[in-house]
Amino acid sequence: MIRHLLSAADLDRETATLVLDTAGQMDAAMAGREVKKLPTLRGRTVVNLFYEDSTRTRISFEAAAKRLSADVITFNAKGSSVSKGESLKDTALTLEAMGADAVVIRHSASGAPHRLSRWVSGSVLNAGDGTHEHPTQALLDAYTMRHRLGRLDGLNVAVVGDVLHSRVARSNVLLLHTLGANVTLVGPPTLLPVGVEGWPAEVSYDFDAVLPKHDVVMMLRVQRERMNDSYFPSAREHARRYGMDARRMAMLPEHAIVMHPGPMNRGMEITPEVADSPRSTIVEQVSNGVSVRMAVLYLMLGGSRPEEV
């Protein structure tokens, strides 16, 4: 197993498949239990180091580590020594001194987990770094697709919206490519990065045209701060051209699913009819997130296998 999970590119097909399979075993192991806890990581310490507010990802990692019986320390940068100007390196040395076996880091600066991995001896898990990557999100998305559609190989997946600033998009492109799916990136040219031609993905500016041939449509969140920065003329125009609504949902193949990493802007990139429809996997993605993160922590920290406990 890999020592750090910094990018979805760290996972080859075999390892990624192992994570997804293990997540399935985690699900199964938890299913019959009254007390939702496995003793596999007892005595191990997992630090959640969050430099950016993200309730969703933080509680998902927290739940995953706790269900594996690890000791969990949550270190919110706000209100800690970090806000007093402590550097990432000094924070890393502090965590090292406390004996962290794994550090889960969320940071607004792209590459912060890579820097951290040079300074700690434990494993580093990237829980979202700036506009770079969010590999466990891609894993939980892949898990959700496989669970719903039975396979990943050959699936056609459209990733729609603000690709430029999306760590979810970057990780998904890499992981889905590794797992044999075909990715099409859809959005206005202003929100697709210069250099995207180097990615293993197709690009389209025409959402309607891609809908009929896609098994999965993954909507990306549009950040509020993009709205007044000339990436698109208005929120309404963006919603019309690149939003997922009932009309577009009807253009999808019957089996197709609609995903969103959350939190959603209802009425912006996705309408309530779609978000609350049976095609939507949004709530499943959240619960799958815990299973996938359990699998990652378990595999990276080398805990005992779930069937042995």
Binding site: P193, V194, W199
Partner: peptide, 11 residues
């Protein structure tokens, strides 16, 4: 360019 797109750093 390609590297900034991959690394998620503003170009």
């Amino acid at each position: 360019g390609r590297e900034s797109a991959r690394l998620g750093l503003t170009g």
